[in-house]
Design a binder for these strands. Structure first.
Length: 438
RNA sequence: GUGACCGUAGCUCAAUUGGUCAGAGCACCGGACUGUGGCUCCGGGGGUUGCGGGUUCAAUUCCCGUCGGUCACCCCA
């Protein structure tokens, strides 16, 4: 067996690259519709950029090394620190809100598994400088419009939304002490893949009363704001504020046309990281795959990284899980550009020369042209044209003999329809005038 | 980092209880088809059976190690 790519890394053969290009083209197109503009940063960053935000533990999960100048560097595992730096550096000059997106290749030194490699391309969409929930709704709409653009309807994809501040208010309301919240978050984050008895035990250890635990499990099953209000029963000012906000958010997403995808789901916590407000994850409705995308609001991150104090929110969407889902649903397309015209001619070098001249003229018109690089039987050339997926073929008359006449023929390889032209110029004019040879 | 399962041509797989078992289909290349393709027929290239040891008269088939793959845990992108 020949040496393959490193574990967790991918070779992109033309077919796979065409699929990747398709995914990226959809990302870019929808991002454009939402007026997000593209940026990029360096794939290699100072190690410190990541340890400062996530602590030293993260180093075990990074591709890092000392460069020849003795600097500690790392292949970027995420884009947020980079974009935070970039925005911070020009915060005053940028028109707010800042709407940026990027499609970086990210790296993570971790054992690979389904939907998770050591490298992937991840769309990052962020908004900086806007604290309103309208921005949260806008972000969600962009993510879901991408799903729609890929052909994934609300029967295929679910957007599960929560809000950390809402969850805190809920916890307080049901009687969970402030200092137990973090521990409760951790339990909630894993509640779906943990036996209930285990979760209950952990909640008890965190100091929750039996009644509060029961209430919490009820609340985690809630999927609308109205249900939440009904289940929790009592209310208070902090809870009211948060409920009003999430309700407005849900209304906004509906106004933006993606309401049927969105549901409230307090089990969504998004790790333990830097999120401060509304958080969300996109899943396939059947629950076969990992999260397709995830994100939320991180209003304090820029300031904590030593930059400006700007509210911020964003989401990431990787190409791996999305690709798996699209393939499984028969929705994967390819951005491959096929051969538009195949030029066929006789079996001698003089014939090949005529073929080359015509090919050059057609290429000058912008057409994708291929031909047999060595003189061969015309049947063979047609076989090659078919295999290449060419849309049309041009048959060049023999250079010397008059067999077959002196006219050029354009043949539609799908329909078999043929048209004759007196000379090469006429062929070029005909093909250049009728592009769309896809 | 931990655990389970798996590893035969580019792909999908076959090879009786270890004994001509290294094969088939697809793909690729060539020929049948000396001015027209995708069909058909024929032929060809390509594998030290992931790699390295061991057991045995004999291993693809058993054992160990290693590398790789898949899945789960950890963690999260």
């Amino acid at each position: 067996m020949a040496q393959g790519a490193l574990p967790g890394f991918r070779d992109f053969y033309p077919q796979e690259l065409a699929e990747r290009a398709y995914i990226m083209s959809v990302w870019r197109e929808v991002a454009r519709r939402y007026a997000f503009v593209e940026y990029d940063g360096p794939p290699l960053e100072p190690l410190e950029l990541y340890t400062k935000k996530s602590g030293e533990e993260i180093v075990g999960q990074l591709y890092n090394f000392d460069d020849k100048g003795g600097r500690q560097v790392a292949l970027r595992p995420e884009m947020t620190p980079t974009v935070a730096r970039m925005v911070g550096a020009r915060a005053n000059a940028l028109r707010k809100p800042v709407r940026w997106f990027s499609i970086p290749q990210l790296f993570r030194y971790e054992r690979q598994q389904k939907g998770r490699l050591r490298e992937h391309y991840q769309l990052n969409v962020d908004i900086f400088g806007e604290a309103s929930v309208a921005a949260d709704a806008e972000l969600m709409a962009a993510a879901l419009d991408m799903m729609r653009a890929f052909g994934l309807g609300h029967d295929d994809v679910r957007a599960r939304v929560s809000d950390r501040r809402l969850l805190r208010a809920v916890l307080t309301t049901i009687g969970a002490a402030e200092d137990a919240h973090e521990a409760v978050f951790a339990v909630i984050d894993k509640v779906e893949r943990t036996p209930r008895a285990v979760s209950e035990e952990k909640l008890r250890a965190a100091g929750l009363e039996e009644s509060a635990t029961g209430k919490l499990f009820e609340l985690l099953r809630v999927r609308t704001a109205a249900e939440l209000r009904a289940v929790i029963g009592t209310t208070n000012r902090a809870l009211d504020e948060r409920l009003a906000e999430i309700e407005q958010y849900l209304d906004f997403t509906a106004r933006l046309g993606v309401g049927e995808y969105v549901q409230l789901d307090l089990t969504i916590v998004r790790g333990l990281a830097y999120y401060t407000g509304i958080v969300f994850e996109l899943f396939d409705a059947k629950g076969e795959f990992r999260a397709i995308a995830g994100g939320g609001r991180y209003d304090t991150l820029l300031a904590s990284l030593g930059g400006v104090d700007l509210p911020a929110l964003g989401f990431g969407m990787g190409d791996v899980v999305l690709g798996e889902l699209l393939r499984a649903r028969g929705l994967m397309k390819s951005a491959a550009r096929p051969v538009e015209v195949w030029v066929a001619g006789g079996e001698r070098t003089v014939d090949l020369q005529k073929v080359m001249s015509l090919a050059a003229s057609l290429r000058a018109e912008g057409l994708a042209v291929e031909y047999s690089l060595r003189p061969q039987q015309i049947a063979k050339q047609f076989k090659a044209a078919a295999t290449a997926g060419a849309k049309r073929a041009v048959i060049v008359p023999l250079a010397t003999d008059a067999v077959g006449g002196t006219e050029y023929t354009i043949r539609d390889l799908d329909s078999g329809e043929q048209t004759k032209y007196p000379d090469a110029d006429a062929v070029v004019r005909a093909l250049a005038a009728a592009p769309g040879a896809r």
